[in-house]
Simulated scan of single mutants.
Amino acid sequence: MNSDHPFKGIGLICCAVFLFAGSDALSKYLTQFYPVVMVLWVRYVVHSGLMMTAFVPKSGFSLIKTKRLDLQIIRGICMVSTNLLFISALHFIPLAEGTAIIYIAPLVVTALSWPFLGERVSQAQWIAVWIGFVGVLIIVRPGGVLFTPVALLALGAALSFSLYQLVTRKLSGVDSSTTSNFISGVISSLVTTAILPFYWKMPADLWHGILMVGLGISALASHLFMTRAYDYAQPSTLAPFTYGQLIFAGLIGYLLFGHIPDRYALLGITIICISGLIMAWSQRKNAHKPLLSDPL
């Protein structure tokens, strides 16, 4: 790692979270016309195909060699279940609020890091966890527009993403990030391919087909940007900037879907951002590994 160029890392991480928000918005748009399974299938097939084209000629079969196949399978299943739940939720709820709910995943990981990973959780991190949960409660509040069974899809996605991150941390140092991302993409492709016949629908026109391919390219580019960002800057430096995805989600949600979060949603999103900044400060102080890894 060359951590002497933090501004390069910050620039790359901002590009990554912008593409993550854009991919979610594109998925939300396409699910207005096509089943979620079909949209995700194209995303994963394009993602895996591009990775195979880019890395197999250089790495060969070593790309799929893993020391923990069991964890890789669990990681891949968590990846596809997270996206199925999250994109299904986005079909019904606004982009900014849905993104804010999924961002409680790092807080859940913090709460579970001691029993599952044996890591010490500081007082500041526990404070951040509870502050973040308060933010989610404000967004999904009784009497609010999101207080419906659909919100459970987003919460389920956040829990699945938390397990995904815990398994990712277990695999850290065991397999390379390229191997993990490739295997997860292949598993997700296989799972969605198996159920695709029940949901297949021909694209209405060439434009929709281009958008689906663009979704896969965007998803892959976002992961590559994020991975590259950590070559230039420390995780504790980059962590606060990952929350820029919430800002991008709000802007894209307004521009594409005309949605403006109400004051309670804005308050909840702000509180979640504050909790994330506290977490980042705690990580920087204690030199811990990042809790937010590999967004989907």
Rank of each mutant, 00 (worst) to 15 (best):
A229W: 01
V80D: 02
F33T: 11
S184D: 07
E119F: 09
I252N: 02
K28C: 03
L292Y: 05
A16P: 04
I247L: 02
L71M: 10
I274C: 03
S184T: 01
V36H: 00
M51L: 15
P240A: 09
R169D: 10
I252C: 02
G253D: 08
I271C: 01
T178Q: 15
R43C: 03
D70K: 14
P57G: 03
W200V: 07
G11L: 02
F61T: 12
M226W: 04
C14K: 09
R75H: 10
P142G: 00
G135Q: 01
T168R: 15
S122C: 09
R263W: 15
P149V: 00
I13A: 06
A105W: 09
M279G: 06
I74T: 13
E97Y: 12
K285P: 07
W41R: 13
F133S: 01
L238N: 04
V109H: 08
V17T: 14
L19P: 01
G216C: 09
P203R: 12
V129A: 02
P57Q: 02
D4E: 15
V45W: 02
I247Q: 03
Y230D: 08
L255F: 15
A204L: 09
G156C: 12
S180M: 14
A239Y: 14
R141A: 01
K65Y: 10
L246R: 06
L190Y: 10
H91C: 03
T82N: 12
M202W: 12
L69K: 14
F61P: 08
F18N: 05
H208N: 15
G132T: 01
R284W: 12
Y264W: 15
I195F: 11
P203C: 10
D231C: 11
A158T: 01
L159V: 14
T148Q: 14
L224V: 11
Y254L: 08
P197S: 11
I104C: 07
Y34H: 11
G253S: 12
S122H: 13
P203Y: 04
H223P: 05
R43N: 11
D262R: 05
L159P: 02
M212L: 14
A105N: 14
L215N: 09
P94T: 05
Y103K: 00
I127D: 08
V36E: 04
P290W: 07
A158L: 00
L69P: 11
R120S: 12
F20L: 04
Q283I: 13
T110R: 05
F225Y: 04
G185L: 03
L90A: 05
G60R: 10
L30V: 05
W200Y: 15
L292H: 01
H47T: 15
I138R: 02
P149T: 02
K289Y: 13
S48R: 03
M52Q: 08
V145N: 08
A280I: 00
V140Y: 00
V150A: 11
E97S: 09
L84A: 09
V129N: 05
I131K: 02
H208M: 11
L215G: 07
V39A: 05
R169Y: 13
H5P: 02
W207K: 09
A229P: 01
H91F: 11
